[in-house]
Nucleic acid binder design. Sequence first.
DNA 1: ACCTTTAACTAACGTTTGTTAGTTAGATAT
DNA 2: ATATCTAACTAACAAACGTTAGTTAAAGGT
Lengths: 194, 194
Amino acid sequence: MQVDQNKSRRAVILECAARLFREKGYKATSMRNIAEAVGIQGASLYNHITGKQEILVELLMSIARLFTKEMNEINKSSLPAVDKLKRLISIHIRYTAEQTDAISIITSEWAHLEEPTLSEYLGLRNAYEEKFEQIIKECIADGTFENVNPKIALFSILSTLRWLYSWYGKQKNINPIELEQEMIHCLLMGLIKR
Amino acid sequence: MQVDQNKSRRAVILECAARLFREKGYKATSMRNIAEAVGIQGASLYNHITGKQEILVELLMSIARLFTKEMNEINKSSLPAVDKLKRLISIHIRYTAEQTDAISIITSEWAHLEEPTLSEYLGLRNAYEEKFEQIIKECIADGTFENVNPKIALFSILSTLRWLYSWYGKQKNINPIELEQEMIHCLLMGLIKR
DNA sequence: ACCTTTAACTAACGTTTGTTAGTTAGATAT
DNA sequence: ATATCTAACTAACAAACGTTAGTTAAAGGT
C-alpha cells in the first residue's frame, strides 16, 4: 500500500483544481478540465476524490481553518492591539504569496459551497471578522486609534487584504517586506491618532 | 409598434439577470433561471436578446463606460488632486448604492466576458487604474501625500471601493454621508502628510 | 505462486445547458 | 377587414456536465 503516492496524487489533483478554479471559476471548470491538467481521464479522478464539491470543500476549509488558528494564536498573545493588527496584515500577505490559488478561491468562490459546509464556512468567517473588529475596537479604546467607525475600518482593511491576491504577483518590483511596511502604513496610519 | 414596452421588457430581463448573476454567478445562472425570474419561458428570452453573453456584455460595459466618463470629467476639472480622489470615492459609493447588482458583476464576473469584449473591457479598466494612479502621484508631487508607493496606495484604495458592494446594504445603521466621510478618512488620512 | 489493492482506462447514464425552429394569440397599422 | 408585427409558447437539438459501472494492467503483500 503506497499511502505516500496516493496522497501526492490527491495533492496534485487539488493543486490543479485550485489553479483552474482560480482561472475560470468553480462552475466553469469541468472534471475533465481538471483531469486533463493532471494528465488522466475524467473518470479516473474518482479513484482519489468523491466528487467535485469535495475538492472545493477541501481547498476552502483548509484555508479557513488556517486563518482561524492564526487569529486564535494572536488573541492568546498579550501584544498591544495595534501590533495584533500588524501581525494579521503580515499573515494575510504571507499566505497570499504562498498559497495564491487557494486564497483566491476562498475570496471569490465560497458561494458555491453546498450545505452544510456553507454554514460551517460562514460561521468561521463571521467569527474571524468579529475578532478582527474586536481588535480594532481595542485600538480605539486604548487611545491608539481615533474614534472611527470600527465596522468601516474593518471593512476597509479586510477588503484590501482579501483582494491582495488579484494584484500581488503582477507587481514584479515589490519585495514582500516593503509591501508589508507600505500596507501597514496605508491601512493603519489613517486611523492612528496624531 | 410599442418601443416603450419592448425596452422595458428588455430592461426587466437585464435587471433579473443582474440579480441572479450576482447571487449565483454567471455560469451557475441558466437562461431558464432568468426566464423564470421574468415570468416567461426560457426560449422566449430570445425575442429580446441575442444570447446569454449579450446580457453580460451589456451589464458590464455600461458600468465600465460610466466610470470612464466620470473619470474623464473629473480630470477635466481643475480641482486639487486630493479633491479628485474624494470625488472618486464619492462616485464609487453612489453607484454602489444605486446599482449594486451591476457593480457586483463588474467586480467578480468580468472574467466570463468573451473576446473581443474582454479586451475592450480590460482596456477601459487599465486606463481607469492608470488615471487613478496618476492622481495619487499628483498628490505626492504637490506635497499633500507622503512619499508612499503609489501602486500600493492605488491598490489599497481601489480594492476597498470595489468590494464595497459585498458589504454595503448589510449595514443598516450607516447613512451614505457618514460612510463617505469615514471612508475618505480610512483611505486617505494614512497617506496625508502630518 | 497466488491474492489483493491501486489507479488507470472505456463506455455509458441521465440531466442540464444554450440555443434554434416553428407556431400562435393578440395588438397595431393601413 | 386585412396584413403585419410582437412576444409569447412548445418541442427539440447537440453538446457538455458530473458521475457510475465494469474492466484491466501493474505493483505489493503473504
